[in-house]
């Protein structure tokens, strides 16, 4: 009778331990938002301040994420957001980290829509064309 009771306790313990082990796990995820970062393409043309027009830029990069009006200039602001996350669930110790980066390009045009200045962010996400997106 006592042995039967012990066997039952043993089975319960194994089930419990199995349940705990099954509950442990890990996960990772990533995601993107915003426009395709065509400015990181190896085929992107050389932008020439004083020569390149707003039309040239939109023909290659597409519509900007934002179009910002300054007093005598227009800014085309391109942005791509990339999220990358990892988590580890060990029941007793659980940890998760999510990192978000912004890949950006900015073009300043004068009143005649001629490029005055452009720049890219030092932080870059892997290039992904609009077709892949």
């Amino acid at each position: 009778m006592e042995r039967k009771k012990s066997l039952k306790q043993w089975s319960m313990a194994v089930l419990l331990m199995g349940g705990i082990m099954l509950s442990a796990g890990c996960a990772n995820w990533d995601g993107y938002a915003g426009v395709a970062n065509e400015w990181r393409s190896p085929d992107v043309p050389e932008w020439k301040p004083g020569v390149t027009t707003a039309s040239d830029v939109t023909a290659v990069l597409g519509p900007p994420s934002q179009l910002i009006a300054l007093h005598d200039e227009t800014v085309f602001y391109y942005m791509r957001e990339g999220k990358d996350g990892k988590s580890l669930l060990l029941i007793i110790w659980n940890t998760g980290t999510q990192t978000t980066e912004y890949d950006r390009a900015m073009f300043f045009f004068d009143k005649k829509s001629i490029l005055r200045k452009y720049c890219y962010s030092p932080e870059a996400l892997p290039y992904e064309s609009a077709e892949e997106k």
Partner: peptide, 13 residues
């Protein structure tokens, strides 16, 4: 029992 740590980084570079 246990502990958990959640971290979120934005534009860290």
């Amino acid at each position: 029992s246990g502990c958990a740590m959640n971290r979120k980084k934005l534009n860290q570079n």
